[in-house]
Computed example of a mutant assay.
Amino acid sequence: MPSSHQPAAPSWPTAWGAIHKGMTVIAADGYPVGTVDHVEGQEVILEGEGSSFVALSEINGVDGNRILLSPRGDATFGLGAEP
């Protein structure tokens, strides 16, 4: 009989709480800027083409399934991560 248990999404512990793949990243103005793909070093890499990212230092907190950025938190958004 197949298990109905879904495998847990990958998770990365941080000072603000665990960050999981699929979490929504919310800018200080309340608008979503992307969805977490993974954490690499000191950066949260977002899903999508171009691999945009936000720095861990720009996180204001983790709330449920959302990452809340500090008022300057979206400053790195769209710069494109280097592999």
Rank of each mutant, 00 (worst) to 15 (best):
G34W: 02
W12G: 05
S57T: 11
R72Y: 12
T24S: 14
T76M: 13
G34H: 04
S3K: 09
F53Q: 00
P83V: 08
G17R: 07
T14H: 00
G17H: 10
E47V: 06
S11P: 00
G64L: 02
D74F: 02
A28P: 02
P7D: 10
E47A: 11
R66L: 10
G80S: 08
R72D: 13
H5A: 15
T76D: 15
I59Q: 00
E58R: 09
W12Q: 08
G78E: 08
L69S: 01
H20C: 02
D37N: 09
A75F: 06
S4N: 12
Y31W: 13
G64N: 01
P83N: 12
D74S: 08
S11I: 01
I67V: 06
V33E: 10
P32F: 12
P13N: 11
A8W: 05
G61H: 14
A81K: 03
G34A: 06
Q6K: 07
R66F: 05
Q42Y: 12
P13S: 14
E49F: 04
V33G: 09
I67S: 02
I26A: 04
A55W: 03
V25S: 03
G34T: 07
L68K: 13
H38R: 11
P7G: 07
S4C: 05
I45D: 07
Q6V: 12
H20F: 02
L56E: 07
S11R: 13
G48S: 06
I67C: 00
V62Y: 03
S70M: 09
N65D: 15
G41L: 08
L69Q: 00
V33H: 06
A75H: 09
G30L: 13
E40R: 14
V25K: 04
V44N: 07
S57W: 13
Q42N: 15
I59Y: 00
A27G: 00
T24N: 11
F77K: 08
S70A: 15
P10W: 01
I26G: 08
